[in-house]
């Protein structure tokens, strides 16, 4: 018995379908397995040290002195948060403004040009950002504003640029995805284009814009290479935006090469804290995407 669809018997076709489904299931399991293994590994390595020094002490003690067995990451927790929030403080408004411009105001040719530039920004390796910061921004801050130049401010400037593509692309798509009827409905009521943007388009795209900002935040807090090169990496509580600072990611990458024993475990614990941060952020994104209207 032959039928359409390759002319093979029905049983052979059904077996083929099952095989394809199984293969696809197997490939998707790989990614689930990978994340599961990372979680298990990170917690297996990190938990024992947290048990030893105490979670609260680990998070709140400003003293990081591995040779004396003192493990407190408060300065780095502050470092990561300050650098990330600082980057968002100027990167998010700028990114949103650019997204609005691209989605609503720019003529097609300008849109193409700027989109190309923004995409290129996303493709630059982070070490190049760091190098740029090291030779341009750090000396500039040292000469014009004082301090060592290696500072929170340098990290904030570099990270703000690095998160632009994420925020711009996601926000622009969210604004473009607002039903055309909303825009026309508003204009037909005599609203100006700008009133329509501010009161209808941006609020309607709110969940997408928020997702873009939180993903940008995730990128900023997880960034390592660019930050290591420009922030100075000192484990001291910063007292101004010109102070040097060390982030959690920098801590891991700087010391993993030579750390052993409890020291190494403390670095895993640092990674664990970072991981928890990022999971929390992901939950925030998905809940932001779900709440609409």
């Amino acid at each position: 018995m032959t039928t359409q669809g390759g002319g093979r018997p029905a049983q052979v076709r059904a077996a083929h379908e099952r095989l394809v489904a199984l293969l696809l299931l197997a490939t998707s399991l790989v990614s689930v397995l990978a994340i599961a293994l990372i979680i298990v590994f990170l917690f297996a390595k990190g938990m024992p040290l947290l048990g030893k020094v105490g979670v609260w002490h680990f998070l709140t003690s400003p003293t990081w002195n591995p040779t004396r067995g003192e493990f407190g990451i408060a300065t780095m927790l502050v470092g990561s948060l300050v650098v990330t929030l600082g980057a968002l403080a100027w990167g998010a408004p700028l990114g949103l403004a650019l997204a609005i411009f691209l989605a609503e105001l720019a003529p097609p040719r300008v849109t193409a040009g700027i989109s190309w530039a923004v995409d290129l920004l996303a493709g630059i390796p982070s070490v190049v950002y760091g190098f740029f910061g090291l030779v341009v921004i750090v000396p500039f801050i040292r000469e014009r504003l004082g301090g060592p130049g290696f500072s929170i401010l340098a990290g904030v400037i570099i990270l703000g640029i690095m998160i632009l593509p994420t925020i711009v692309n996601i926000s622009r798509d969210a604004i473009r995805a607002v039903p055309r009827d909303y825009k026309e409905g508003s204009l037909a009521l005599g609203a100006t284009h700008w009133q329509t943007i501010v009161r209808i388009l941006v609020p309607s795209a709110r969940s997408g814009i928020l997702a873009g900002i939180v993903l940008g935040m995730g990128r900023a807090i997880g960034e390592t290479m660019a930050v290591v090169l420009v922030t100075g990496n000192v484990t001291r509580m910063p007292d101004s935006i010109l102070s040097p600072v060390r982030t959690m990611t920098s801590n891991v990458v700087l010391e993993m090469g030579y750390a052993s024993g409890d020291h190494q475990l403390a670095l895993f614990a640092t990674g664990m804290v970072l991981f928890v941060f990022i999971v929390v952020m992901n939950v925030m994104v998905s809940s932001a995407m779900r709440t609409r209207g």
């Binding site: 039903p179 909303y182 409905g185 037909a188 005599g190 100006t192 009133q195 009161r199 609020p203």
Partner: peptide, 30 residues
């Protein structure tokens, strides 16, 4: 001014994603 005098209703019923009150108040507010 023209669009205030000549209103329009579209094919797809598309209320703005806001409260009933704010939908109606949108025009007067702008």
């Amino acid at each position: 001014e023209l669009r205030k005098r000549v209103g329009m209703v579209f094919q797809k019923p598309s209320a703005f994603p806001m409260s009933i009150y704010d939908n109606i108040a949108y025009g007067p507010r702008i």
